[in-house]
Write a protein that binds this DNA or RNA. Structure first.
Length: 109
DNA sequence: CTCTTGACTGAGG
DNA sequence: GCCTCAGCCAAGA
């Protein structure tokens, strides 16, 4: 119902498709969904994703900054999760961001 | 219906 | 490179 192909559902699906040890940006997801200007909606969807099993910690802003870490438990849980996957994070900033960046519009078909 | 908020992004100074 | 402003779209009060 309800539009199984909602913006929300799409966000969730893409988020689930993010490979292990990779990260992407809100804008990249929004662009892949066809709404490049709706990056905020992606983040907002992620907020609602708390009730779903989604690796939201793999989604950061275009700078590779963990802007959403504040929404996780604790203050460095998001960083811990990323480092656990091999992603180097220093002070909420993903190191070697270009290398771990995963673009759904390019790598996903 | 109107106003505010928000896990964003790009352009301008 | 950093700070600020404007655009964007959806949900809640």
């Amino acid at each position: 119902m309800d539009s199984e192909h909602n913006f929300f559902e799409k966000c969730y699906q893409v988020a689930r498709l993010i490979p292990y040890g990779r990260v992407t940006s809100y804008g990249a997801i929004a662009t892949y969904l066809g709404s490049a200007r709706s990056a905020r909606m992606v983040g907002w969807a992620m907020n609602a994703s708390k009730n779903a099993t989604i690796p939201a910690h793999r989604v950061v802003n275009r700078k590779g900054l963990l802007t959403g870490k504040q929404h996780f438990e604790g203050t460095n849980l998001m960083q811990q999760l990323l480092e656990n996957e091999g992603v180097v994070v220093i002070k909420n900033q993903i190191q070697n961001f270009e290398n771990v960046f995963w673009n759904p519009s390019e790598e996903l078909i």
